[in-house]
């Protein structure tokens, strides 16, 4: 049996299956570079990074942790929204930025703890638990905003705090990008280098084995869901700081893209495990395609078709070729 492990036939198929994302990524970059003169300009790439990558990537980082543990979090949008809502409400009420950020993250924390309780105490499967929380979170927002009225912050309203978050830069790098870099490194270390990360991988691979190895599965799993909600909360704060408002139910837009990006990233690993690098690559891929399609003249609607087809193709190549090599 162990012989099959080192049967060293690096077939083209296996190669393609493993690197399908990278190949697609390279092909797409080359394609857009050739068809759009503005695509490769620093200004455009910078724009993609700040506007399309950062917020989605932070949500996706959280989902990467959850999916590694063998679960899913459909309520990330609620965490985004709740953080955004509390943050904006606090600022509108005249509180300082620090209180606003604290309150926003606190709101996301509540969502995470609720998920954790449902999953680890009541033994509800993550999919259903977070689906329920998603429903409740949507209701809560509608009730709190009389049916979904956005809360705008007119300029002058604590505008310093907004600027401090969204519009400043450190050595020419915008603050949100720095936040993303710091969080990516932190999550990477946590997931791939730390004891906690190893426990998360074990729970994802075989929860029974984790339990029989003396791992405190409920505690670690709670931590997983709390971290995911907190990361989504960071996105919520960045989002409202950027658009200077809270728009109810806007967080849900991240859910499908973040799941897509995380799973695109899993195609990098043989066992289809999520990884921080893979997830970031997935987010970049989605962002670049959106931007590129825009530049070559596709309107917003076609972009969605393009993204869907791209994700479909990457998944098809990765899953299909892998199946063929098995």
């Amino acid at each position: 049996m162990s012989v099959s492990a080192n049967s060293p036939k690096p077939s083209l198929r296996a190669f393609l299956a493993k690197y399908s994302v990278l190949i697609a990524f390279a092909a797409i970059v080359i394609f857009f570079a050739l068809t759009s003169p503005t695509f490769l300009t620093p200004a455009n790439l910078f724009n993609v990074l700040v506007n399309n990558v950062v917020m989605l990537a932070i949500v996706a980082l959280g989902l990467t942790i959850v999916i590694s543990s063998g679960g899913i979090d459909l309520s990330v949008g609620v965490s985004v929204d709740m953080a955004s809502m509390v943050f904006v409400m606090l600022l509108a009420a005249g509180y300082s930025g620090v209180v606003g950020v604290g309150g926003g993250l606190g709101a996301a924390l509540v969502v995470g703890i609720l998920n954790a309780i449902l999953i680890t105490r009541l033994n509800i499967s993550p999919f259903l638990a977070t689906l329920g929380v998603l429903f409740i979170g949507q209701s809560t927002q509608q009730l709190a905003t009389s049916g979904g009225q956005p809360i705008y912050l007119t300029s002058g309203y604590a505008s310093d705090q907004f600027n401090a978050i969204a519009r400043t830069a450190l050595f020419g790098v915008p603050t949100p990008v720095i936040v993303l870099i710091v969080l990516s490194i932190a999550v990477h270390v946590l997931l791939h280098r730390s004891v906690f990360g190893r426990y998360v991988q074990a729970m994802g691979a075989q929860p029974g084995v984790a339990w029989y190895s003396g791992i405190r599965v409920p505690r670690e799993l709670s931590m997983v869901h709390v971290l995911c909600a907190l990361l989504a909360g960071v996105t919520g704060i960045l989002l409202s700081a950027t658009v200077k408002s809270y728009v109810p139910l806007s967080g849900n837009a991240f859910l499908l893209d973040a799941i897509g990006a995380t799973f695109i990233g899993t195609t990098l690993s043989r066992e289809r495990k999520p990884s921080v690098v893979g997830t970031l690559l997935g987010v970049l891929l989605l962002a670049i395609v959106k931007n590129g399609l825009l530049l070559v003249g596709w309107n917003f609607y076609w972009q969605q078709v393009g993204i869907g087809l791209l994700v479909f193709l990457v998944l098809a190549v990765s899953f299909g070729l892998r199946r063929a090599t098995h």
Binding site: F263, Y301, W302, Q304, G308, F312, G320
Partner: peptide, 24 residues
């Protein structure tokens, strides 16, 4: 069935395609 993609992912991608085509 043909490509063995997880249903959750496969239908997620198709969701985007269908929604985009509707918008278009």
């Amino acid at each position: 069935v043909g490509l063995g993609i997880l249903p959750l992912l496969a239908t997620l991608a198709v969701l985007n395609v269908a929604a985009g085509m509707e918008l278009t």
